[in-house]
Design a protein around this nucleic acid. Structure first.
Lengths: 165, 165
DNA sequence: TATTTACAGAACCAATTCGGTCCGATATCC
DNA sequence: GGATATCGGACCGAATTGGTTCTGTAAATA
């Protein structure tokens, strides 16, 4: 199947919720704990906790342990792309296994489509890297088809704006 | 995981192989049987057979039964988009389950990212619909980043060229 | 017409993956 | 020192996937 896992789906919902609820960056003051977030988003606590841990390990969130601890965004929503969220939760964005890098494809000799797939992957990656967390929580975004503008910038040679420099 | 199934991967390899080997359209003369194709692509015969059946059911291939039968492309490679191949093998291209249409998402009330996901899906779909089977077997394609040109056309309001009219 | 070839369709099974839970350890606040 | 909350695993049942097998049917050929 082409769709991504529920964990990734939930994770993006959580990030959007965090961005909406605490626009400020990750100080202790703006952090929310897993139980609180779970009830707000209406998902089981262990699941939310697991997702938040993954996002923290990937550097998307910051964690504060101990009493009054919790999670908060590690970056501004404008600086967090959809590609990075998906990568953090689901691994690298690659449509075919040949493009995963590490493992060797045993059909390499007879495989005629390796390079084209790489181009396709690149296009998908770039289109998704043009959409940021800030876009996701912007109500006027969906109506405007905004990601296309970032694609336009990409086509003119400009790197996607969400890229961390 | 964001990647697509092995079946889809194999299927596209098979289609590319067919397009390379028999550029002409689906007359009996240009058809190849499952066993032959399986040995050429170096995959188990039952797997190849299963994939070819799916592609036939989806209208991507034509089948000829009986002795000297086999499979052949139902359309010219230029008229077959990657989106259609993936759809035929893996179902509709949709990244999150909320976008699958039929089933109802139980978190709809607290879900803040439904519309943005639809936009993202659309961008992915259009970028993939701009790449055709003919592109996949064109050696100079990968170097040129050709899919971007179709994205450019899309952004100017033109429908993707691979769409069947 | 009998035989051979090859697709059609469905059931089937083993293995991997995924969604979700649980627990001991560690760090922080009061 | 006690309470709170994350960290990092292991863990399990269920769903999906990759792959096989079998019976039926259509077409070509002798």
């Amino acid at each position: 199947m082409f769709r991504l896992s529920k964990i990734t789906d939930y994770g993006i919902v959580l990030l959007a919720h965090l961005a909406k609820r605490a626009p400020g960056l990750g100080t202790q003051a703006t952090s929310h704990n897993a139980r609180e977030l779970a009830s707000e988003v209406d998902l089981p606590v262990p699941v939310v906790s697991k997702i938040l841990k993954s996002l923290t390990r990937a550097g998307v969130l910051e964690s504060h342990r101990g009493a009054k601890g919790g999670y908060s965004l590690a970056r501004r929503p404008e600086d967090l792309s959809v590609v990075e969220m998906i990568t953090a939760l689901d691994g690298p964005v690659a449509l075919t296994q040949c493009n995963m890098g590490t493992e060797v494809c045993e059909h390499e000799g007879s495989c005629a489509v390796r390079n084209p797939w790489q181009v396709i992957n690149q296009v998908v990656r770039y289109s998704l890297s043009g959409v940021t967390l800030a876009d996701l929580i912007n109500p006027s975004f969906s109506a405007q088809h905004a990601p296309l503008s970032s694609l336009g910038r990409y086509m003119q040679g400009e790197p996607p704006r969400s890229r961390v420099s």
